[in-house]
Design a protein around this nucleic acid. Structure first.
Lengths: 146, 146
DNA sequence: TGCCATAGTTACCGTTTAGTAACCGTGATG
DNA sequence: CATCACGGTTACTAAACGGTAACTATGGCA
């Protein structure tokens, strides 16, 4: 329940510093993050960080819920961004292996913090949600819509 | 160009550990991250971390490019997740202030790593992209579509 | 009387995204 | 000759996203 204001102040300083460094960069960084921080990309990053090198079918089983199409698509994008390396062995049936580049591993490490945050604060978020919804329902009862 | 394998191994251990902790959690965490890691949410988080407390109109000017609708919408979602606090002063014209909760500040801190990563690796990503596109163009020239 | 500012909400509509399911090539196998 | 495995690609469709513009409420002010 207590807050580490030292840490927060530090974060604020960091964020402010980056703003000052280069105003143009902000947009680019934001774009990169937006591109990289999507649902499937993060899950694939995680799975590849965990298992090292994986073939397409194996990957599709480990990334629960993804469709073949989205897996292909996301992997291509990640390859384009330089996050994964795609190795095709010219045999039949085809054998294609995917693994993270240094860049990909670095991103995995960076995301680790968010991952940990999410894990640690799951309960708090769910709590906040039900509380919010409760307040919304109360307001609804007080001022019902037409 | 060199790789810090120590760090990477560490990351892999961390990620693996978390997997083991609770398989159900993975889905939940992923959902939370997916919800939180969108373009506007991150930008707003950033701006609020930098400026502390802001009114609606001021916020809309600092978050360049956002429409009134999306700002309202995103702020409501963030409030629901417990990331921001919305304070309404019952005066006229209305005065509404937004600021981050501890949870929001914590998320900002966690994302800081990703932010730094993106900033540091911008060049490498752009490089990877042009390289990829070049290879794609070459392949295209070698095997033109019908 | 009419207009201002603030912080929204709502209706409408085009764009983007993601999922389903079918199809493709190839060589080995039955 | 037909089927399977593997790693895709493609067409179709439903849902979500996000932008514009108009509308809301309220008290103060000219």
């Amino acid at each position: 329940m207590s807050v580490d204001f030292t840490k927060h102040a530090e974060v604020q300083r960091k964020l402010a510093q980056e703003e000052k460094l280069d105003p143009r960069v902000q947009g680019l960084v934001n774009e990169v993050i937006a591109r990289v921080a999507d649902k499937w990309t993060m899950t694939i990053l995680d799975v590849l960080a965990e298992h090292g090198e994986l073939r397409f079918t194996r990957l599709s089983k480990l990334v629960t819920g993804i469709s073949q199409k989205m897996l292909t698509q996301t992997l291509r994008e990640m390859e384009r961004e330089g996050l994964v390396i795609r190795t095709v062995h010219p045999v039949v049936p085809p054998r294609v292996e995917y693994r993270l580049t240094d860049l990909g591993l670095g991103l995995g490490a960076a995301f680790c913090g968010v991952w940990v945050w999410a894990e640690q604060n799951l309960a708090r978020i769910e709590e906040a949600r039900t509380e919010f919804d409760q307040r919304a329902a109360d307001a609804q009862r007080a001022y019902p819509r037409t």
